[in-house]
Computed example of a mutant assay.
Amino acid sequence: MKVTINSAHFAATWHWSVPPDEVCGICRVPFDGCCPECSIPGDDCPLIWGKCTHVYHLHCILRWINSENSKGQCPLDRQPWVTAT
């Protein structure tokens, strides 16, 4: 017996590889959501880890680091902000 598939419909979900109950330390929005600057979570709103192990939405930490108050430091522990590689 030969089967021919004429069409298929797929559904998928995604999530960041951090616990789902964790939130961004700056905007306080869960990581499986998106920052206040974005309307749709995903690749346009990635997460970024610091060497201090804190995680933020990319847009949130960039806005923080570019502010005068940040002094180039992590907002949670005040260590110099260095992006983890």
Rank of each mutant, 00 (worst) to 15 (best):
N66Y: 07
W81P: 08
C38T: 00
S7Y: 12
E68I: 08
V3C: 00
W49A: 14
A11H: 14
H57F: 10
S67L: 01
M1A: 13
D77K: 03
S39A: 09
A12D: 04
T83V: 15
D44N: 09
K51S: 03
I48M: 15
S7Q: 12
A84F: 14
D77Y: 08
T13K: 13
G50H: 08
V82I: 15
S7F: 12
I61Q: 10
D43K: 10
D43C: 03
G42P: 06
P80L: 15
H59L: 11
W16Q: 06
R28I: 02
H15V: 02
C52Q: 06
C24L: 08
R28V: 04
D44E: 09
D44G: 08
A8P: 00
G25W: 08
N66H: 14
G72I: 09
H15K: 13
G25P: 01
V3H: 01
W16I: 01
S70G: 04
P75I: 12
L58I: 03
S17D: 15
A84N: 08
P19M: 04
T85G: 13
K51P: 01
W16H: 15
R28G: 01
W49G: 06
V3I: 15
Q79D: 08
Q73G: 03
A8D: 04
I61S: 05
Y56L: 02
N6W: 02
C74P: 02
P41N: 09
D43W: 05
D43E: 09
H15A: 15
T53M: 08
A12M: 10
T4E: 07
G50S: 10
N6P: 00
E68C: 01
H57S: 03
S39L: 11
V82M: 08
P19Y: 10
P75N: 09
G25F: 11
D32M: 06
I40Y: 04
Q73A: 15
K51I: 02
S17E: 15
P75H: 07
W14E: 07
Q73L: 13
W64Q: 00
G33I: 03
A8C: 13
H9F: 04
V29Y: 00
C60T: 06
R28Y: 09
R63P: 01
G25S: 06
C24Q: 05
P20R: 03
D77E: 05
L76Y: 00
W16P: 07
T13W: 07
C45M: 03
C74N: 05
N6M: 07
S67A: 11
C35N: 03
M1I: 06
E68D: 07
P41D: 06
I5G: 01
H54L: 04
S39I: 11
C74A: 01
L47R: 04
V82E: 15
Q73K: 15
G50T: 06
E22H: 12
H59A: 14
G25Q: 04
D21W: 11
F31P: 01
E37V: 12
E22F: 12
P80Y: 10
Q73E: 14
A84W: 15
G42V: 14
R63F: 01
A8F: 14
I65V: 14
C24M: 04
N66Q: 07
I26R: 05
N66R: 13
W49S: 13
